[in-house]
């Protein structure tokens, strides 16, 4: 498509803004109703978490861009090494786990010469 004129902005507004915000609005309406019901809220939480987990799995197993051709074992190895540091990391587990995973990935990418 051409990126000139106002059409790209209308395109983004319809296929981008409207396509995402209708679900946010639906969430507000639904969220106001499930306030009191513990079991429904628990289910909604579980579904929301599983959705985000599925996005994470796709980023790890089927990355786009620079990592597209990187070996799967390297990406999984980074996650496992990061998780190991996370669980022994105590108070600093989050920055430690993230730094460990990224360092493992960077070292691996450098070694295989990406």
């Amino acid at each position: 498509m051409s990126f000139d004129g106002v059409w790209p902005y209308i395109y983004i507004a319809i296929a981008g803004w409207l396509a995402t915000d209708i679900w946010r609005w639906a969430g507000v309406i639904a969220g106001k109703r499930i306030d009191e019901n513990y079991e429904t809220l628990n289910w909604v939480r579980a579904v929301a978490t599983a959705l985000v987990a599925a996005v994470i799995a796709k980023l790890i197993f089927f990355p786009t861009g620079a990592l597209e051709n990187s070996p799967l074992w390297l990406r999984l190895g980074s996650i496992l090494f990061g998780a190991l540091c996370f669980f022994i990391g105590g108070r600093f587990r989050q920055p430690l786990g993230i730094a460990a995973a990224i360092a493992f990935l960077a070292a691996g990418l450098a070694l295989i010469g990406l």
């Binding site: 969430g27 969220g31 909604v44 929301a48």
Partner: peptide, 10 residues
């Protein structure tokens, strides 16, 4: 996925 996320946050 925005819907259950927002619904859990509200």
């Amino acid at each position: 996925r925005m819907m259950p996320m927002v619904a859990a946050l509200i």
